[in-house]
Write a protein that binds this DNA or RNA. Structure first.
Length: 878
RNA sequence: GCCCAGGUGGCGGAACGGUAGACGCGGGGGACUUAAAAUCCUCUGGGGCAACCCGUGCGGGUUCGAAUCCCGCCCUGGGCACCA
């Protein structure tokens, strides 16, 4: 062993050995319990990995390594979400082609992942942009198509003018594109959809069984947005040929309807608008069409709208109410039309006040009939129905029931469940994706490509940039477009849209179970063995995108019989963000700050050239680590300055797994110091290491009164208790307390060693040290595998720590044989007494009462009550 | 506005309703060194000479006992936001 800890020597050596031994290869082994540990499918970015990304990969790796040592057959794969907007946009920005950039970036990711010692089975690596993968993505499309779950329809869709493609609802965040933050526009285009709404109820209900962060489950529930209500029909005054339907969750307020509203795009608008109102209605519709999302979403949400001139008949009292159009009613939800009850709905209330419409109270909080002359407030809570004909006097909840029945009995409407969730728009007008395997034939119409003709290869072209015409660049490639109909053999055109990247990531976790199968997407026995994923780990930003889509595909596969589970991810955990200090400077005279900006971002190179005086003006903000903010710290630089094991230990220790952290280098130094101490102690102990410590300790402890002295017993207790705690904390994602336990154990070992080292070497003590040291090296291995393997070898052991079983701990040894009994008087701490672990309640009470310090606080008064908590404390109440 | 998390030393954070502050960072003092770095020892919530007292965002409550449970506020972070 070298005198000092030398990671530059150790780490590359073990990387090579691990690779040579194919140490991380996973094979199916039905005799062992399985554990599937999976990190979110990353897209390989040109910026490479930062220490922020490692916040996910390192804990997963520690978990995977521990589970292997604990006898599980662990699947811990890695692959590349290489198709889709992120990869393609990046290639465009760099003036390159994704077919060139993707392999380069992948190579760099792999290099970095190996550098920090991640134990991926690279023999299972998959890349979603390769034909051997996307062939099966296309196969999935056909399975959905076959079941009527993939369809093409003309619909108003979200168009990103910058990315020049349509986007799914889930990809629009606050009216902006998730990739480039450009405001999206509404366009009417024929597009491909997956019918995820058919699974809305199951996607909602099955959430209950999942061990996921509550916040993510809530976000999915909200996104699905189930609501129960009544849909009913309204006639139009003087137009017996026309009628429209409305949906409401508050049918109990129907007597309060004083107007009705249609969405501006509602198909009935043209027919009902009176000649006098036509000009105003047309102008409003035109405005609504043109209005961008930003204005529609702006904080000052003005309640605009115009009167159509027509009147609808309220079916409960035959009263005519004016019909308006207004953009606060969305064509895409419910029926695109509402009954408006200003007294009990905030939006209707605002609109009524603005347009001078009557407000009729029909729900009273306390049952009193309100003064008809007073200007009513808007009340949305529960209460008693008033002004509601035969229903007056009923509690509104009961009224809802009765009115539902009333509508159904008369055939005027029915109770209905509505969802906020819309079908998943999957087609993209972009090059870098899996082509949709459909042929358009003039005679047969839409024809799916037969499975045996897959894959539909993405043509290899240089000019792949999006056209912006609403057509994919593939439309300009005649060799691709022109084909024959698989059904009738006539000349036909291929579908030229590609699938969005989220299609690829909706099933990759299944492919990892059988990654090189060229006969089918995955063999049944393999997915039955490995699925579901036991630990799925990644950022919270995919709450309603990937995590919803993957659940949907899994359920489709389950129904079709080729996926063995209803839910793909049994357990989900989100890592915390990594923030870094980001420098800003005040704006110069010719510069202005945009809204929300605190200053001008300073680049790395600019920062280095700054003079002290300028630097003093900088202000630093904690922001998410990202290349665009010039605040990235790479694992490469940390490994170079310290070591991969240091980085691993630091990221595990610094905070709870799901907490955001502020990246500071001081803490890293502390971890490096710890590894240095470990190295030095191990080097000191090595000459005295007794390989046969087991029989020695067994013999010593067989006699009833264990002859080990007190420090030795305590050392053993610490060893066994630590092994237990570490093994329990890691699967619980309490990595920080696991590392703390490791350190405490080590501190204790150091003290013990120092104590016995003064004495002549006694066999028992050396056996106790040897046990501690051997177990420690193995327990260290999931966290810091390089140094662990190096020590393992230095101590003369064969093989790799990863192949060793995690040390067995003995429950009885892990228990302390004495404890510090706390004595309280009236709940306040007054004394501590060390007592044997098996002390009786009576003895505890006695000892407590005898304590002189307790006596002083009792002041001669007799105790009124004594509470004894075995193993803990005695509380004396006076 | 609504829905989630979360407020504990100088800092990151520990604490099945039972010793608040484990572990680490930073800081003070000391040893080694010509010196520095590294390393090691030691102290480190506040107040008080002490016995003790005060301390987990704020105000109440439950309890023998509350950082932990309940009620009402105040902040911070994240998510959603015309969904009838």
């Amino acid at each position: 062993m070298t005198e000092a800890y030398d990671p530059k020597q150790i780490e590359p050596k073990w990387h090579a050995r691990w690779q040579q031994a194919r140490l991380f290869r996973t094979q199916d082994d039905p005799s062992k319990p399985k554990c599937y540990v999976l990190a979110f499918f990353p897209y390989p970015s040109g910026d490479g990995l930062s220490v922020g990304h490692c916040r996910n990969y390192i804990p997963c790796d520690a978990l995977a390594r521990l589970m292997r040592m604990r006898g599980y057959n662990v699947l811990h794969p890695m692959g590349w979400d290489a198709f889709g907007l992120p990869a393609e946009n990046e290639a465009i920005n760099k003036g390159s082609h994704p077919k060139h950039t993707v392999p380069r970036y992948v190579a760099n990711y792999k290099r970095q992942m190996n550098l920090i010692g991640l134990s991926y089975d690279w023999e299972r690596e998959i890349n979603s942009s390769q034909p051997d993968y996307y062939k099966w993505t296309q196969w999935w499309f056909l399975q959905l198509y076959k079941r009527g779950l993939a369809y093409r329809a003309n619909a108003p869709v979200n168009w990103c003018p910058r990315c020049r493609t349509v986007l799914a609802n889930e990809e629009v965040e606050g009216g902006k594109c998730w990739r480039c933050e450009t405001l999206v526009e509404k366009r009417d285009m024929p597009q491909w959809f997956f019918k995820i709404t058919a699974y809305a109820d199951r996607l909602l209900h099955d959430l209950d069984e999942l061990d996921w962060p509550e916040g993510i489950k809530q976000m999915q529930r909200h996104w699905i947005g189930r609501s129960e209500g009544v849909e009913f029909e309204m006639a139009i005054q003087g137009r017996p040929d026309l009628k429209f339907r409305v949906f409401t969750t508050r049918i109990d307020t129907v007597f309060g309807m004083t107007f009705a509203v249609l969405a501006p795009e509602h198909p009935l608008v043209d027919a009902i608008t009176t000649p006098e109102q036509r000009a105003a209605v047309e102008a409003y519709r035109e405005r609504a069409r043109r209005l961008d999302e930003a204005t529609r979403l702006s904080a000052e949400r003005e309640r605009t709208g115009v009167f159509t001139g027509a009147y609808a008949i309220n079916p409960v009292n035959d009263e005519p109410v004016p019909i308006y159009i207004a953009d606060y009613v969305l064509m895409t939800y419910g029926t695109g039309a509402i009954m408006a009850v200003p007294a009990h709905d905030e939006r209707d209330y605002d609109f009524a006040r603005k347009h001078g419409l009557p407000i009729r109270v029909v729900i009273s909080p306390d049952g009193s009939v309100p003064d008809p002359d007073a200007t009513p407030e808007c009340y949305t809570g529960d209460g008693v129905m008033v002004n509601s004909g035969a229903f007056s006097g009923l509690p509104n909840r009961e009224g809802m029931q009765r009115l539902g029945e009333w509508f159904e009995a008369r055939g005027l409407g029915e109770r209905k469940v509505n969802y906020r969730l819309r079908d998943w728009l999957i087609s993209r007008q972009r090059y870098w994706g899996a082509p949709i395997p459909i042929v358009h034939c003039p005679a047969c119409g839409e024809v799916p490509v037969p499975e045996n003709q897959l894959p539909v290869l993405l043509p290899d072209v240089e000019a792949y940039q999006p056209s912006g015409t609403g057509e994919s660049p593939l439309a300009n490639i005649p060799e691709f477009v022109n084909t024959t109909c698989p059904q009738c053999g006539q000349v036909a055109r291929r579908e030229t849209d590609t699938m969005g990247g989220f299609a690829c990531s909706s099933w990759y976790f299944l492919r990892f179970c059988d990654p090189h199968n060229d006969k089918e997407p995955f063999a049944q026995d393999k997915v039955r063995y490995w699925m579901p994923v036991d630990y799925y780990v990644g950022g919270a930003e995919h709450a309603v995108m990937h995590l919803l889509y993957a659940r949907f595909w899994t359920k489709v596969g389950y129904d079709a019989g080729f996926v063995p589970v209803k839910e793909p991810f049994y357990r989900l955990r989100n890592q915390g963000m990594v923030l870094a200090l980001t420098p800003y400077r005040p704006p110069r005279e010719d510069e202005t700050l945009r809204e929300g900006e605190v200053g001008i971002l300073v680049r790395r190179d600019q920062l280095e050239q700054m003079r002290e005086q300028e630097k003093a003006q900088l202000f630093w903000q904690w922001e998410k680590m990202s290349k665009s903010r010039y605040n990235v710290v790479t694992p490469d630089e940390i490994v170079k300055r310290y070591s991969a094991d240091t980085l691993r230990l630091y990221e595990l220790f610094v905070a709870p797994f799901d907490t955001a952290i502020e990246w500071k280098e001081e803490g890293v130094k502390g971890m490096h110091r710890f590894l240095g101490r470990v190295w030095r102690l191990m080097r000191e102990v090595r000459p005295c290491f007794v390989r046969d410590w087991r029989p020695i300790l067994n013999e010593s402890c067989q006699t009833p009164e264990c002859p080990l002295d007190e420090p030795a017993r305590k050392m053993r207790q610490r060893t066994h208790a630590s092994l237990k705690k570490i093994a329990a904390d890691i699967p619980d994602f309490k990595f920080n307390t696991a590392v703390a336990a490791l350190m405490e154990w080590f501190n204790h070992m150091e003290d013990y060693w120092r104590g016995v080292n003064q004495q002549p070497c006694c066999a028992d003590a050396m056996a106790v040290v040897s046990e501690a040291v051997e177990c420690f090296i193995l327990a260290l291995s999931p966290f810091a595998p390089h140094i662990a393997d190096e020590l393992w070898e230095a101590y003369g052991f064969e093989g790799f720590t990863l192949q060793q079983p995690y040390p067995q701990y003995d429950e009885s040894l892990a228990r302390a044989d004495e404890f510090e009994m706390v004595v309280q008087v009236n709940g306040k701490l007054r004394d501590r007494i060390v007592v044997p672990a098996d002390i009786s309640r009576e003895a505890m009470e006695q000892l407590a009462l005898q304590s002189p310090r307790v006596q002083a606080h009792l002041g001669g008064k007799p105790p009124r009550k004594v509470i004894v908590v075995p193993g803990k404390l005695v509380n004396i109440v006076v």
